[in-house]
């Protein structure tokens, strides 16, 4: 398992990684299959997706309806993980919340990718003044410690799932921009790019046909790990009351509401937390495994 921080905005992309990334998806898949941790992560992600799509069809309780007669019950055969302060089945709410968590994770990373990737490629491809300008802007985004920018953005935009996606997406931009820039610069220096240019290929063609395919793999690794971070941040924002609003069965929001009852009824806070850990762990494991499979030399 490659040991590297999963927060790295500083990750460098050596030439070797870029070239190896294009050495065939078959090889990568083979190496990935040998990595047990990555397999566990992959299967967990698959399971989460299946639960998100099919799970709500099989739950017997209502995730939203308030019923004080079943308030704060401990786990039992009827209520597998107990009920919350509004008498709602926690297991049902967790199942219904899975799709929200994945939705926020995937979409916020997509927002960061759609903005960060072109910025990074432009920066790395054209260099000079444009590069300096873009990188200074990225530096400004990075000057806000950790999740502070996301908190600040949600505080002015208002708490909602979509605003969380925007805020976490903006938070993810620098990571993608830096990796795309580094990879683009590494590929651009290769001789065959000069050859293609000499043949009269346009910048757009070079970027689309030659640069982009070469930077896909580091970007996929980054995206996978970013989803894990996005899920963590989003749950934190909801916990602060800045994200998903009640009665949405979002896991962070469930923790936030269950907080006052957890001392006498620990199940209201225990299980939503475990659900978050599972989802984050799944993407971290899979991301780690992907990185090792794509760049075996980095294996620690």
């Amino acid at each position: 398992m490659r040991s590297m921080t999963n927060l790295d905005n500083t990750v460098s992309t050596p030439d070797s990684q870029v070239i190896q990334g294009s050495s065939g998806w078959g090889m990568i898949y083979k190496r990935l299959r040998k990595n047990k941790a990555a397999l566990i992560g992959g299967y967990l992600i698959l399971l989460l997706i299946i639960v998100a799509i099919l799970g709500p069809l099989f739950t017997v309780h209502d995730p939203l309806r308030v019923d004080y007669s079943t308030r704060l019950l401990s786990p039992s055969g009827e209520y597998w993980l107990g009920t919350d302060h509004n008498g709602r089945d926690i297991f049902t709410r967790l199942i219904h919340g899975t799709s929200i968590t994945l939705y926020i994770g995937f979409l916020s990373v997509l927002v960061g990718l759609i903005i960060g990737l072109p910025l990074g490629i432009l920066s790395g491809y054209y260099g000079k003044a444009l590069d300096s300008f873009i990188m200074r802007c990225i530096d400004v985004l990075l000057a806000f410690p950790g999740i502070l920018l996301a908190i600040a953005l949600v505080s002015v935009l208002g708490g909602s799932i979509n605003n969380v996606i925007i805020a976490v997406g903006v938070f993810s931009i620098p990571g993608f921009a830096r990796i795309a820039r580094g990879s683009t610069m590494a590929v651009r220096k290769l001789e065959y790019i000069d050859a293609v240019r000499a043949l009269g290929a346009s910048d757009l063609r070079i970027i689309g046909l030659h640069i982009l395919p070469n930077i896909v793999s580091p970007i996929i690794v980054q995206a996978t790990i970013r989803i894990a971070i996005a899920i963590l941040i989003a749950s934190g924002l909801s916990f602060l009351g800045l994200g998903a609003q009640p009665p949405t069965p979002e896991w962070g929001a469930m923790l936030s509401q269950g907080r006052s009852y957890m001392f006498d009824h620990p199940h209201v806070a225990l299980y939503p937390g475990l659900a978050i850990v599972t989802a984050v762990l799944a993407f971290n494991l899979f991301g780690d495994g992907l990185r090792d499979a794509i760049d075996p030399q980095s294996k620690g």
């Binding site: 999963n6 894990a228 963590l232 962070g252 806070a269 225990l270 937390g273 978050i276 984050v280 971290n284």
Partner: peptide, 14 residues
């Protein structure tokens, strides 16, 4: 791995 996959606020509550 668990250490950084865990929401800090949840760890605090536990």
């Amino acid at each position: 791995l668990f250490g950084f996959s865990m929401p800090a606020f949840w760890l605090g509550l536990m």
